[in-house]
Design a protein around this nucleic acid. Structure first.
Length: 130
RNA sequence: AUAGCAGAUCUAUCUUAUCGCCAUGCUUAAGGCGUGGAGGAAAGUCCGGACAUCAAAGAGUAGCAUAGCGGAUAACGUCCGUCCAGCGUAAGUUGAGGACCAGUGCAACAGAAAGCAAGUACAGUUCGGCUGUAGUGAAACCCGGUAAACUCUAUGCGAUGCAAUGCCAUGUAAAUUAGAGCUUGAGAGCUACUCGCUCGAUUCUAAAGGGUAGGCAGAUAGAUUCUAAAAGUAAUUUUAGAGCUAGAUAAAUGAUAAGAGCCUUUUUUUAAGGUACAGGAUUCGGCUUAUUGAUCUGCUAUUUUU
């Protein structure tokens, strides 16, 4: 699998984001939090993902950009964890809840935890008897 | 040489490898290849424009801004020159530098008293708190001081900001119900107020309900950048030649590794640490604030040597 993250694979529609926050559920692996929702979106990819960093925690735009880039980078390299397990289209929003800067290795490890956690959660739901 | 003053410039770490992002061109079945990809402050949003919309861009009042004089400019609260005043030995630097013969207010300490007034001592006297002197004070009836006090004067200012604005797409929707009104006119328009003026029936208000929240244009070639010459004390202007330099929209310009450079400390050639402030969002001219390292130019004072 190619480790790419092009425009269509990123969550861009305002409508979808609103819907995601209204109806989505979430998993946490501090300092990361992922809100997810199974729904149709605007591309053929298995999922669309967005990242966000609170302006309250990081006043400087440079710091915010840095965190967002790290988030995207670590997602890009590990997204097959998700793609191997999901059949229906999903939308995700990954937020950074911490108040201090983070190193790349740490971010990478946290992302791994977050994604495996998500896979476990969804598996539990689908396996459970209705 | 030391201390200082003014100004300008450069860099805003660099190289390689691997994996990626945005725009664009070529090619294509997927894909591949090429080219370009943040700042000096992009920031604060504090001034001034361009541009767009509001029918026209009217008058007065209020409000706000500016304030020696002259010039530059698209414009400015910016810039340049110059006079005056304060500070500095000097180079320089700072200035909220119009008016207190329009009115109102204010004045520490001292002093009887800092302007309806009151009034000490002595002397003079036309016997009228009339005149002079003394005492306090920066200032005591003088055209007094003070406008970073109200105020007055002069000049300027319509409002809203690209989430402007136009077009396309979507929706049975110029639909339904209730009320008001139809030229003797409901209501709307400039958006602080008044006047004046204009528009006005496919209208205005309310309720319930439906839809969109996506795309294209605006939007990246301009009061543009560089070089040279000429005019001007200068800001700046004119002419000629050359150049094209981000265009995203939950928002690209990155991540990792290795090496090199620079700085600091330890030390004497190794190791460790550091390598600022900060990220475009219609656009331009300024101001202000944040901040790393270095270079250069001109000038002043003091001292030494020749």
């Amino acid at each position: 699998m190619k480790h790419t993250l092009v425009k269509l694979e990123r969550l861009k529609s305002k409508k979808l984001i609103e819907k995601l926050y209204e109806q989505g559920s979430s998993v946490k692996s501090f300092p990361l939090r992922m809100v997810y929702l199974q729904t149709k979106h605007t591309s053929d990819f298995p999922a669309q993902v967005g990242v966000s960093v609170s302006k309250r925690n990081f006043k400087s735009a440079v710091d915010r950009n840095r965190i967002k880039r790290l988030l995207r980078e670590s997602y890009r390299l590990q997204k097959e964890i998700l793609y191997d397990h999901i059949q229906n289209p999903y939308v995700f929003m990954i937020s950074y809840l911490g108040k201090e800067e983070i190193k790349y290795e740490e971010m990478y490890a946290k992302m791994t935890m977050l994604l495996t956690l998500f896979v476990a959660e969804t598996k539990k739901k689908t396996d459970a008897p209705i």
